[in-house]
Design a protein around this nucleic acid. Structure first.
Length: 567
RNA sequence: CGGGGUGUAGCGCAGCCCGGUUAGCGCGCCUGCUUUGGGAGCAGGAAGUCGCCGGUUCGAAUCCGGCCACCCCGACCA
């Protein structure tokens, strides 16, 4: 393909809106163009990459025994009422009305639609298991779209759904898809990690995410040398066994902490570390108040809170309510002397405190030397806080490391969540009906484009892995006015094309500097440069990733390219 | 949803405070000549509802009011 005849609008300057490298480079290299916030056109060069990733995904899904289908984008609103997700999805669901004012949702994912298909069409255990997938545009009204196609309101996703008669069967497919995803990301040439994950609003039990490792990834991953990795939001906070706090005191004492309401203020005032202080957080759960104790240097993870207390509507007590319940103002709450009907629960990490510093439930006072068990009673311990770097691995007990990643894939064991709510059942050998056991498996195709760049770029531009590069080779004649160079370039393009190689010929009549800069910006893995050495029958082959330049006879160029691509 | 910021040519920006010719600059684009190994030179040229609506004024990109869009930060941790 000739550059002069293509729509590849590169930009010299950085668009102001782009914050992270992949977004900046996708705009500058002419891969995408913004229509409005979170909504992008894939320009020809970007689309080539998208299509390559798409076909790798398709091949591996087919190889894993899944069947492709295509479901509608427009969904009648009622199906979300049926599954109960109208509320959980809530504001993220795009809605449109037809001419008769009937409400439709723009599909954010297709559990409902596919479950209806299974309900009607897979009635016998003989039909199972089955795994259906599709690749199409999804719509989510993101609270805050950002980073270009990384978090867009309209994006392309591969979503797959499997139906089973047993957990064992689900597990087999789950592992099969897990392997397929590994092959997909490996074929795309990216470094990644599989992590234990939260299942979020999709629901279900077991869940894993596939993270492409990248500095600017939105997700935080804790990983261990033993191979275990977990999403930070799910990881258990585990610390080394050691006790803190003074011991052998017969009683606690109240100290003045005027104006010191936050952990930082109290720790500075008392000259202790935040870790020495225990925060008491007051919540309303149903008709009871709950006091949660966590170390001063830890933060509560709301997902864990809701799950452990089995209450998705739990909320903080408001300032006025805190006064009523504890007798003291916000910032000075503590577990000692709370009304007896208040449940007191604590994070596991609280076990290490033989005594603690807590709020006194009085303005400007804290208590030092409070001993759990003696001075108040903790009803139960559980995992409530966010883990952090250095916390211990759940498998082997060694400290874990923090890294960032881009979530490109997420697989879930849904169980019967949707089949029950939507009454989707099959008949077993005995003629008894059971809800389907389901799995679902998402893979972000458009996000993968951004993730690949986020992991592979330098100061000059993108460095595409060969398998997903928009072209494999760029032929760059220094001067198109030079007949010999022009002809040699054109003949090289033909020769490469005949061998089935995807080649872009930069036949634009521009100064060499511009062409070199553009070449590095768009990041085609291999470049053939035709310049003055052509007089001696020599051209250069440039490797974008290593920046290595090799001089070769022009006659051997095609063979050399074939050799390098084969690797 | 809350806070902050920005809207002037395809991209990046100045002008606005202090109202007043034909609204500027750099890059890009078009034409011609020169140039051709790292974002070329000269000459000429095209391109703007100054986000939108309303108001003040003899006169508004500039002042006032409303709306919209976009970007960033935050969304209750005592």
């Amino acid at each position: 393909m000739r550059w002069s005849e293509s729509c590849i609008p590169t930009m010299k300057e950085n668009p102001r809106e782009a914050e992270i490298p992949s977004h900046r480079l996708m705009l500058r290299a002419g891969l995408i163009k913004k229509l409005t916030a979170g909504i992008y056109t894939f320009l020809p060069l970007g689309l080539r990459v998208l299509k390559k990733i798409e076909s790798i995904v398709r091949e591996e899904m087919n190889a894993a025994g899944c069947q492709e289908l295509l479901m509608p984008i427009l969904h009648p609103e009622e199906i979300y009422a049926e599954s109960g997700r109208l509320e959980t999805f809530g504001p993220e669901l795009y809605k449109v009305r037809d001419g008769r004012q009937r409400v439709f949702a723009l599909g954010p994912t297709h559990e409902e639609v596919v479950t209806m298909i299974a309900r009607d069409e897979m009635r016998s255990y003989r039909d199972l298991p089955q795994c259906l997938y599709q690749i199409l545009t999804k719509f989510r009204d993101e609270i805050r779209p950002r980073y270009g196609v990384m978090r867009a309101r309209e994006f392309i996703m591969k979503d797959a759904y499997s139906f089973h008669t047993s957990e064992a069967s689900l597990d087999r497919t789950y592992r099969e898809i897990e392997k397929a995803y590994q092959r997909i990301i490996e074929r795309c040439g990216l470094r990644y990690r599989i992590v234990e994950a939260e299942s979020g609003y999709i629901g279900g039990n077991e869940s894993h995410e596939f993270m492409v490792l990248a500095e600017n990834g939105e997700d935080r991953i804790l990983s261990c040398g033993c191979g275990y990795a977990v999403n930070l939001e799910r990881a258990t906070a585990r610390e080394k066994e050691e006790t803190t706090g003074e011991e052998n005191k017969s009683t606690y004492k109240a100290v003045d902490t005027p104006g010191a309401a936050t952990v930082d203020e109290v720790s500075q005032f008392l000259r202790v570390t935040p870790r020495d202080i225990v925060k008491t957080l007051l919540y309303r759960s149903g008709d009871r108040n709950v006091a949660l104790l966590v170390p001063g240097d830890r933060e509560v993870n709301d997902i864990k809170l809701c799950r452990n207390l089995d209450d998705s509507t739990i909320r903080f007590l408001e300032a006025g309510e805190i006064d009523e319940v504890t007798g003291g103002p916000v910032g000075f709450s503590g577990p000692v002397g709370l009304p007896p009907e208040t449940r007191i629960v604590a994070d596991e990490t609280i076990k290490r405190y033989s005594s603690m510093i807590v709020g006194a439930n009085k303005a400007d006072k804290h208590l030092v030397g409070v001993v759990p068990g003696r001075d108040f009673v903790i009803e139960s311990f559980n995992d409530y806080v966010y883990a952090r770097e250095g916390d211990l691995c759940a498998r082997c007990g060694k400290p874990m490391e923090l890294s960032n990643g881009v979530e490109v894939g997420h697989i879930f064991k849904l169980g019967t969540k949707y089949s029950r709510s939507m009454n989707a059942k099959y008949l077993d050998e005995k003629g008894e009906s059971h809800p389907f056991i389901m799995g679902c498996y998402g893979f972000g195709i458009s996000r993968m484009v951004a993730a690949a760049i986020e992991q592979n770029f330098d100061d000059d531009g993108i460095i595409w892995p060969l398998s997903i590069a928009p072209f494999q080779v760029l032929v760059l004649p220094i001067n198109m006015d030079d007949q010999k160079i022009k002809e040699a370039a054109e003949s090289l393009e033909r020769g490469l094309k005949e061998k089935g190689i995807e080649v872009l010929l930069d036949d634009r009549d521009l100064s060499p500097g511009v062409k070199f800069k553009d070449a590095e910006l768009i990041g085609i893995p291999l470049r053939l440069t035709l310049g003055r050495k052509l007089q001696e029958g020599k051209i250069e082959i440039f490797d974008r990733a290593s920046r290595q330049v090799t001089e070769i006879p022009v006659g051997e160029a095609v063979a050399e390219i074939l050799k390098r691509i084969a690797i």
